[in-house]
């Protein structure tokens, strides 16, 4: 039905339907399930996301390693103080992305979007924008189908695995997916969704996957935080009428090429980047009793 973002956008134009609807029709065609079944299944995923967000912003969640937890609560308190520089909506999205990843790091229940390490960006932006845009339950579920449509193209033409393509393939993809879905939720066109995705993903290109001690904690949680902010800003830029000079599909191809040529030390092996810093190796030794590898000299 569609393999590329260009084909996806063409269908929305020829049939005069939103991106979310194309994804739903494709799912019906592919699996033979009914629309109601598919909608209900996505509705359940939405509930899991909401529960994780609420847990993360209210409870003092701590991971087993002690490396992450509690930052979403700090952000919520800061928002309440009224002193935030970047604004309530943006920071709320950021705090809810953090909440999700903190719950994930604590071996809590989350919904992978597209992966667990990048699970914060999509629900973070959705629940962060809820107050401002006041969406119906159906619109919130559609947000997930729209994110899914862009993620589907990325997964099939590039990668959504940090081990295969670096963090750009995980948090990068999630950020692009969220940006595109925000545009649809805010009333933008499918073309604007594609530009938002392109703008967001361009700013994630080259991002390496270098988890400290091999844990999905540092820097993953904070990369989801900034990914959420990038998604909202990219959506705003696109809604303002700004376009990406490089089409979305070519940005995805570039991401794939960069991932292919990225050394394996930067692809979820904990052998390079932040994972190989003296502090990271010291943390590793503390957590596991001994460092997994020598620090970078």
């Amino acid at each position: 039905m569609f393999r590329t973002v260009a084909e996806l956008i063409d269908i929305t134009k020829s049939k005069n339907i939103p991106i979310s609807e194309v994804m739903i029709l494709k799912e019906i065609e592919e699996t033979g399930k009914s629309r109601e079944e598919i909608f209900a299944q996505m509705g359940k995923n939405l509930e899991v996301m909401e529960a994780a967000v609420l847990r993360g912003i209210k409870e003092d969640v701590k991971s087993h390693s002690g490396l992450t937890g509690g930052d979403a609560v700090l952000l919520q308190k800061y928002i309440e103080s009224g002193k935030s520089l970047s604004g309530t909506t943006l920071l709320d999205a950021v705090s809810k992305a953090v909440a999700t990843n903190e719950v994930n790091a604590a071996m809590g229940t989350i919904c992978a979007t597209p992966t667990a390490g990048s699970a914060g960006v999509v629900p973070g932006t959705l629940f962060g924008l809820k107050e401002k845009l006041n969406p119906t339950k159906e619109q919130m579920v559609r947000f997930l189908f729209t994110s899914g449509a862009f993620g589907y193209v990325v997964a099939n033409n590039a990668s959504i695995s940090g081990a295969a393509g670096g963090c750009q393939a995980e948090v990068g993809s999630a950020t692009g997916m969220a940006a595109a879905a925000i545009v649809e939720l805010a009333g933008g066109t499918p073309d604007q969704s594609a530009h938002a995705m392109a703008i967001a993903l361009k700013n994630m290109l080259g991002l390496v996957c270098d988890p400290v001690a091999g844990l999905v904690e540092v820097p993953c949680v904070k990369r989801n935080a900034i990914g959420a902010s990038t998604a909202v800003v990219a959506a705003d830029m696109s809604l303002a009428g700004i376009t990406s000079r490089i089409p979305c599909d070519e940005v995805i191809d570039a991401m794939y090429e960069i991932g292919q040529r990225m050394p394996s030390a930067f692809k979820e092996t904990a052998e390079g980047g932040l994972a190989a810093t003296p502090t990271a190796r010291a943390l590793e030794a503390k957590i596991f009793g001994a460092a997994l590898a020598k620090e970078r000299s």
């Binding site: 991971s63 992978a112 597209p114 667990a116 390490g117 994110s147 899914g148 993620g151 999905v216």
Partner: peptide
Amino acid sequence: IIGPVMIGPSS
């Protein structure tokens, strides 16, 4: 892409 629902931390 939007799933699975899972216990963390890595899909």
